[in-house]
Computed example of a mutant assay.
Amino acid sequence: MPFIRTRSRARLRTTAVLVGVLALGGVAGCTSVETPPPGTTDTADTAAQLDQLTVAAAASMRGYSRERFPHWRNAGKNCDVRDTVLQRDGTGIKLSGCNVVGGRWSSRYDKRTLADPSDVDIDHMVPLANAWRSGADDWNDDKRGDFANDLDRPQLVAVSASSNRAKGDQDPSQWKPSNRDDWCGYAEDWIAVKHHWRLSVTTAEKAALDDMLGSC
């Protein structure tokens, strides 16, 4: 489980819930969720990763559409990646087949507690449009689909629909979670995703991420 590392108590509680679910063999009626929750890295390692990112101006949006990032992929019988993240990040999950129809979610961006999956969005930590402007425009659609459905890095997280829509496709120089307690984790996760996928950052974006790491 690559993202279980020392950091905030909130993240450790999330990890504990996941471990408990997996120990019981998953939620009845659905394939066990084996993807870890969005996690953390050592702050020094993250700072080093930030320094390794290419700094470049944002590219053009020409040719962009969400359809160039195919999602959500199937992830089990009657279950897609969205359901996988809802199940992973929630508690008291209720299923119809392998579709999540109930539960409770704590939105890390704004500390809202949600009890209806229709109020929950699955946020792409690095938004698809931002990825397009920072290198994904050169990928093929298969690779963009891998990025849009990436469960192996902290790229997908269940949050309130209102916070996700406020964020839009903005980078951390333009939008930060209203929950300042999440600034450290948000910066770490953003950097981890960009570093793995070799996406660039703008000068302002890098400065904002460096500032957010100062809250760790």
Rank of each mutant, 00 (worst) to 15 (best):
G103S: 02
V126D: 05
N130E: 15
T91P: 00
H71M: 09
W132E: 04
Q87G: 08
P70M: 02
V100P: 07
A131S: 10
F69P: 06
H124D: 01
G90T: 12
H124V: 01
D121N: 04
Q87A: 15
V81A: 07
V85P: 14
P127L: 07
S118P: 00
G102F: 09
Q87K: 13
L128G: 00
R112Y: 07
D123Y: 01
L95S: 09
D119R: 08
P117F: 01
N74S: 15
P70Q: 01
G103D: 03
R73S: 10
P70I: 05
R68A: 13
V126E: 06
G92N: 15
N78R: 15
R133T: 14
S106N: 08
C98E: 10
G76Q: 08
S106I: 02
D80H: 11
D119H: 10
D123I: 02
K111T: 07
R73I: 04
H124A: 01
D123C: 02
D116A: 06
A75P: 08
S134W: 06
S118N: 12
L86H: 13
S106E: 08
T113R: 10
R82V: 06
L95E: 13
L86T: 12
W132I: 02
N130A: 15
T113Y: 07
C98R: 05
N99G: 10
T91A: 03
W72D: 10
D83G: 13
D123F: 04
V81L: 05
T84R: 12
C98D: 04
K111N: 07
Y109E: 00
H124E: 00
N99R: 15
S118W: 04
N99L: 09
A115H: 12
C79P: 02
C79V: 05
I93C: 03
D80Q: 12
V120D: 07
G90V: 11
D123G: 01
T84N: 11
S118Y: 08
I93P: 03
D110V: 00
D116Y: 03
S96L: 00
D83I: 11
H71G: 04
H71N: 15
A115M: 05
F69A: 10
K111W: 03
A115G: 14
D116I: 04
G103M: 04
N99E: 15
N130G: 09
R108T: 05
R112Q: 15
W105G: 14
V85Y: 13
A131Y: 05
H71P: 06
S118D: 14
P117G: 02
V120R: 04
W105V: 13
D83A: 12
A75W: 15
C98F: 03
R73N: 14
I93E: 01
T91R: 04
C79L: 06
A131L: 05
S106G: 05
S106A: 12
L95H: 10
R73A: 14
I93S: 02
V81F: 11
R68S: 10
G102K: 08
R133N: 05
W132A: 02
P117S: 01
T113E: 13
G90Q: 07
A75V: 04
H71L: 11
R88T: 06
G90P: 05
D116M: 03
I93D: 04
G97Q: 12
W105K: 13
M125T: 14
W105C: 12
L128R: 03
R133W: 06
S106Y: 11
L128I: 09
